[in-house]
Write a protein that binds this DNA or RNA. Structure first.
Lengths: 305, 305
DNA sequence: TTTTATGCGTCGTATTTCTTGACGTATCGA
DNA sequence: TCGATACGTCAAGAAATACGACGCATAAAA
């Protein structure tokens, strides 16, 4: 109180979070009141009043009390004072809530807009499974997993040493060394039923050349589209000269190609379903093949030694 | 353990959050120490010590101090005491961080595992645009948007009244009444460049029959797949008797079909790229068509009156 | 119109929470 | 062996917050 310059920059974590909450509600809901703050943070109404006054000192032009609505409302001159105004983050939380991955109380949302997230739900990943995989990655150890392969009826056990996670087309995978096959492979997380710690020292993940090395996917709009639509597609993906260079790990090129139908020959699908095409597919396939060979050889040398 | 009434249930929000933080770190990182808590919450080490003691009283079997590592580590008997152990939520945060939508400091992660999220980034949605759309949804008002249509060169202005948001294939759309066309349409959020409040009263969103009414998509494994793989696919999507009934809004059926190549005739694509097929496509198309007609007629009646 | 309920704000005092400073212990590595 | 760095605890003081009391403005119900 005696100090002046500390007024605008709250130092303590609880107060800072409450002020961020006010900012958040103003931004996304356009309104906030004392009761909201009290309910969210379990504080007294007096303290909430004080917080609102504090926020008003910080950003005087952001809100005004509307006696009719009995609440603070966002002004037209509002400008975010404390929060990152990332729409992606906001939308991501909507997905999380709509999908049941988060409770609304965990977020700072008040009223949600009408939202629909329609997806084909797949078997979820057990948190215990994920935990064990993360431990194995962190400790560079091997685990024995029960894996539901697509080509076998019963669950098979595999001994693997995961070293990274990756995500594509709403599926999560572990990139892992397979002791059984003596090479590196991908394991769909939601196909892993059980995880058990086992001993043994896995091959170093540096040998996973398909993971370490990247290739540039050359992507362009489908030439079968009308020129105006090609321009639109180019703009949407931020292409320059109708071309986009996307560096991806060799081991992930397949998934990205599959996701966007880049692995289908032009003409097979209607152009509307294949807005972008891959311009250097032979190079990509070749690079992948040769690094896969080199990786296997390197592993063999390391094991033989 | 000994004392029950006040010790085990932390009442105040700041303390509760700190205890949750301890639980979170133990679960996902397997370790936590005094410094972590001090750095995250801006508290003194003494207070952090007290919090750790508090947590240990809450869940005595969850952690043990390892003098060698100079840190608390998770025990094998660990069981989450305070946090929801949702792996989806954890993985979602990984995506958010890897995509730059969240800062690592905003989350409670310590060391992240090696992660790669490779996606084709599209033009992001401006937060101001999203804010205005949300306001319009909440207040049932019309806005004039600058829209980058795929079939026109320059941005066109449209007068719309959005009433819901929906998400599919990593794109967000607004479902809105179009004053120009006198029907309900979808607007890709990242194609909206500007939003301006305008007057006028839109048609009631109840008339959006394609949004209100749902249809059951009958989905089954691709019959061209070997039987064993069909079983695997059925298990992955939680089908019963090789069939899945997925209720979706009529207006969203198109997107879901497109996402999973359900709108491609069986045989055109290799079965591996089309693991599931739509069994009742004529019904879906028919339902959509007729409700679209009915909706237009209802709007006309309401306007003429 | 009056009444009642529900927003908000503020003042002074009590209480809880957290910090500060001082001091002690165990482990590791130079 | 020494210094650095983890941990822990105790006691006093500062800061944050709660509690109780009171006043003001608006809207909806009586």
């Amino acid at each position: 109180m005696a100090v002046e310059n500390s007024d605008d920059a709250p130092q303590k974590w609880p107060l800072r979070k409450r002020l961020e909450f006010i900012d958040f509600r103003l931004f996304w809901n356009g309104r906030v009141n004392r009761g909201d703050i009290r309910d969210t943070f379990d504080i007294s109404v007096q303290q909430a009043s004080s917080d609102l006054a504090h926020y008003e000192r910080l950003a005087p032009r952001n809100m005004v009390y509307d006696r009719g609505q009995k609440t603070y409302v966002r002004t037209d001159t509002y400008h975010p004072a404390l929060i990152e105004r990332s729409s992606e983050r906001f939308l991501l939380q909507l997905v999380a809530i709509d999908s049941g991955w988060m409770q609304r109380e965990e977020t700072w949302f008040d009223q949600l807009p009408p939202v629909d997230v329609t997806t084909l739900k797949r078997r979820p990943t057990g948190s215990r499974v994920l935990l064990e995989i993360l431990d194995a990655i962190r400790n560079h150890t091997q685990v024995e997993i029960g894996y539901r392969s697509l080509t076998e009826t019963a669950d098979a056990t595999r001994t693997i040493a995961p070293h990274a996670l990756f995500y594509n087309s709403s599926r999560w995978y572990a990139r892992a060394y397979s002791a059984d096959h003596e090479d590196f492979r991908d394991y769909n997380l939601n196909r892993i039923g059980t995880v058990r710690k086992v001993g043994g020292i896995p091959a170093d993940s540096d040998f996973d050349y398909e993971w370490v090395h990247t290739v540039d996917l050359e992507i362009g709009p489908n030439p079968e589209l009308p020129p105006i639509q090609q321009e639109g597609v180019a703009a949407e993906y931020g292409m320059t000269d109708n071309k986009l260079l996307l560096p991806v790990r060799l081991s992930m090129a397949f998934y990205l190609m599959s996701e966007h139908n880049l692995d289908v020959d032009v003409g097979v699908l209607p152009a509307a379903k294949q807005q972008i095409v891959l311009l250097n597919r032979p190079d990509v396939d070749q690079a992948r093949k040769s690094f896969r060979q080199l990786s296997k050889q390197a592993i063999k040398r390391a094991l033989g030694k």
